[in-house]
C-alpha cells in the first residue's frame, strides 16, 4: 500500500515542476486483453502488459498553439524515444488441438 501511495505522491508532486523548458516525457501504461476464440483451435485467454517509455525532445515543448497532447506536432519538435514492455499471457483451459 505504501508503494502505491508513494507512486501517487510522486505523480502529483510533478505539479510543482517548472512548466517551462520541458524536454523529457516519460510514460507508463498498463493494458489488459481478454480474447475469445470461436472454435477449439486455441483456448480463450487473458493477458496483461506493462510498458514504460521515455521521449527526449531536442527543443522544449511549446503549449502556446494547440492542445497539450499535440504540443510536439504543433512545435515540430525533433525527438528520440525508447520503451520497454513486459507482459504475461494466460490461456483459459486447455483446448489446443
Amino acid at each position: 500500500m505504501k508503494t502505491y501511495l508513494s507512486l501517487a505522491a510522486a505523480l502529483f508532486a510533478t505539479s510543482a515542476l517548472p512548466a517551462s523548458a520541458q524536454n523529457l516525457e516519460t510514460n507508463l501504461s498498463l493494458a489488459f486483453t481478454d480474447t475469445q476464440f470461436s472454435k477449439n483451435v486455441s483456448p480463450d485467454s487473458t493477458s496483461y502488459r506493462v510498458q514504460a517509455g521515455a521521449t527526449y525532445y531536442l527543443t522544449p515543448l511549446d503549449y502556446g498553439h494547440g492542445p497539450y497532447a499535440l504540443a510536439a506536432f504543433y512545435g515540430r519538435n525533433l525527438s528520440v524515444s525508447a520503451s520497454y514492455s513486459l507482459g504475461e499471457y494466460k490461456p483459459k483451459g486447455m483446448r489446443l488441438i
Partner: peptide, 18 residues
C-alpha cells in the same frame, strides 16, 4: 473461414513531462 476471434483491450496510462 468459419473461425473468429474477439478481443477487448483496456489500457490505462500516465505521462510525466519534465
Amino acid at each position: 473461414d468459419g473461425f473468429s476471434i474477439a478481443s477487448n483491450v483496456f489500457q490505462f496510462g500516465t505521462k510525466v513531462r519534465f
